[in-house]
Nucleic acid binder design. Structure first.
Length: 517
RNA sequence: GACCCCAUCGUCUAGCCAGGUCAAGGACACCGGCCUUUCACGCCGGCAACACGGGUUCAAAUCCCGUUGGGGUCGCCA
């Protein structure tokens, strides 16, 4: 353990109960350190889908902590998964964080002294570092095939053994490994973890955490495509970017020993690690899109104010000294004590968020409220998209609202007529529910470019594959998404409504259909 | 299953580190009332929790151990 740096820049009056004493001693020791490192924090999302509410949550705490200490908050794009990463997702992350007012000091789009800030542009750096570890014996090439690893896992599962790589290639003599690499044999680079003893790591909120080393397998650092895994990339980058505090989600605790081992192998000081509790669904599982809206795009489209959103997110991990629940980002920056973050996984409660949002709305001057309405719900741009679709169906201006109201409302209520049409002709309610659900989850959720053309292609493709005819399926979709059997062309309507609203309404329709038994 | 984390009202939490002032406080939701032409807002009131079992102590929501429960991780994803 490198030891000293965990106190860098903070005043760790630790709240972790079990370590109070030890922590207090360490804090006292470090008080003489006038050379505290500047505080630098980061958010490191991977651009593989819709911008996630959890990203905003973690970003908020990182930004607040950095700002409180006059440090920097960095945005780093972790796009080392070549298949899953895409530029549309990256752009949405920027948009969503900016919408919330979570501005970063350094990042791919704003630059900074430690760039590039997009990991795909740093591949060479990771490769060099991986080689350093191979040279020092802290990592080794592994030639195991996917088939062998699958078989290994299957066997371990069957025999109820601990899962993980068995270290097969670790015993290959370095010279031979080198020869095979030169010969062009496909391989990855794995971290050589100690096999006995225990790894002792420290989390700001929880104190010391111990892991038996036999539990920790040899993690892949460099994939066979030459790209790093998260484990290598995040450690290398956090060090090179001089990140002082790694504030991230709790799900990373299990891999902390590997990260700590990497710092040690490189001979680097560790940052302070602080793992925030995971946001939860109502059933207490980790928040997920099956059970909760998780896309920041949804919250924006659904008419939540960014400042209310931020306020609520702060409440998910922090309580003000006077227990006030309504406060702005500046107050949060002033008052936050990282060590005081609450540990229980908070259930994300839409009802309370909605209440808070209402409070914020009522506080705004009418003119300001109108400006919000104009920018999010009644923008000229949106109106201009809706108008062409409705125009042919109305004869006077005042009929506009009547024919277009579903473009401006949130959740729909299906009347009896609508409920009837929600069920596909010649099919049952459960069948229709299943089709809509599959369409949504397997085909629509992953669609990044929500255009009429793409939608049509995807939906027709689904029909072909599933044996549903367009004639059967289009009406239920139409009613689900608009609440009415008479609407402008389906895919254009869906494109204008946007992904978030369509997704939400489709999901509600599935619930509705299921209730019909 | 193994390892790790967590544990106060249905939900978010205060209190816990420095045990007594806690017959456990606040907020959301829910219920009732007031205000009001209606609804909403606002205000007032109500319902509702220390997971369980041991231990330490004059005293435990607070400290210790165990159990139970919940969660996370176990990928050439992050």
């Amino acid at each position: 353990m490198s030891g000293a740096t965990w106190t860098a820049g903070s005043n760790p009056a630790l709240s972790a109960k079990k370590l109070r004493t030890a922590a207090g001693n360490r804090a006292a020791e470090s008080q003489g350190e006038s050379m505290a490192r500047p505080v630098r924090t980061r958010i490191a999302p991977s651009p593989t889908g819709d911008p996630h509410v959890g990203t905003a949550y973690v970003a908020l705490f990182n930004l607040a902590f950095a700002r409180q200490h006059g440090g920097q908050f960095i945005l780093r794009i972790e796009d080392t998964d070549q298949v899953r990463s895409d530029v549309a997702s990256e752009a949405m992350i920027y948009d969503a964080l900016r919408w919330l007012g979570l501005e970063w000091d350094e990042g791919p789009d704003v630059g900074g002294p430690h760039g590039p800030y997009r990991q795909s542009e740093r591949a060479e750096i990771y490769r060099e570092h991986a080689e350093r570890l191979v040279a020092s014996g802290d990592a080794y090439p592994c030639f195991c095939t996917k088939e062998r690893l699958d078989a290994l896992r299957a066997e371990q599962r069957e025999k109820k053994l601990a899962l993980g790589y068995d270290g097969h290639c670790r015993s290959i003599p370095p010279q031979e490994a080198e020869r095979r690499r030169k010969a062009g044999e496909a391989h990855v680079i794995r971290l050589a973890m100690p096999r006995e003893g225990e790894s002792v790591v420290r989390d700001l909120l929880r104190g010391v955490i111990r892991f038996p080393n036999e539990q920790i397998d040899d993690q892949v650092l460099l994939k066979s495509d030459g790209f790093p895994t998260y484990h290598l990339a995040n450690v290398v980058d956090d060090h090179l970017m001089e990140v002082s505090h790694v504030i991230r989600a709790e799900e990373w605790i299990s891999s902390l020993p590997k990260h700590v081992r990497l710092y040690e192998a490189f001979g680097w000081d560790e940052p302070v690690f602080c793992h925030l509790p995971l946001l939860r669904n109502a059933d207490r599982s980790k928040i997920s899109k099956r059970k909760n809206p998780v896309s920041l795009n949804y919250y924006r489209r659904a008419g939540f104010l960014p400042e209310a959103m931020l306020n609520y997110l702060a409440l998910m991990g922090w309580t003000m000294p006077d227990e006030r629940e309504e406060f702005g980002l500046d107050e949060f920056v002033d008052e936050l004590k990282l060590e005081g973050v609450t540990l229980g996984g908070p259930v994300f409660d839409l009802a309370k968020l909605t209440w808070l949002n209402g409070r914020y709305m009522r506080r705004l001057e009418p003119a300001e409220l109108l400006a919000r309405l104009r920018s999010e719900i009644l923008s000229d741009g949106y109106l201009l998209e809706v108008l062409p679709l409705v125009r042919e169906r109305i004869d006077t201006l005042d009929a506009f609202m009547e024919y277009s109201q579903f473009f401006f409302t949130g959740d729909l209520t299906y009347d009896d007529a609508a409920r009837t049409k929600l069920v596909a002709k010649g099919r049952t309610a459960p069948q229709t529910a299943k089709a809509l659900r599959t369409l949504l989850e397997d085909h629509l959720d992953g669609l990044m470019e929500w255009s009429a053309e793409n939608l049509e292609e995807v939906v027709r493709g689904f029909c072909e594959a599933s044996g549903w005819t367009p004639k059967e399926l289009f009406m239920p979709i139409r009613v689900a998404v608009t609440g009415s059997p008479a609407t402008p062309p389906l895919f254009e309507t869906m494109a204008v409504l946007g992904k978030e609203l369509c997704r939400r309404r489709l999901r509600n329709a599935v619930t509705e259909l299921r209730s019909m038994k």
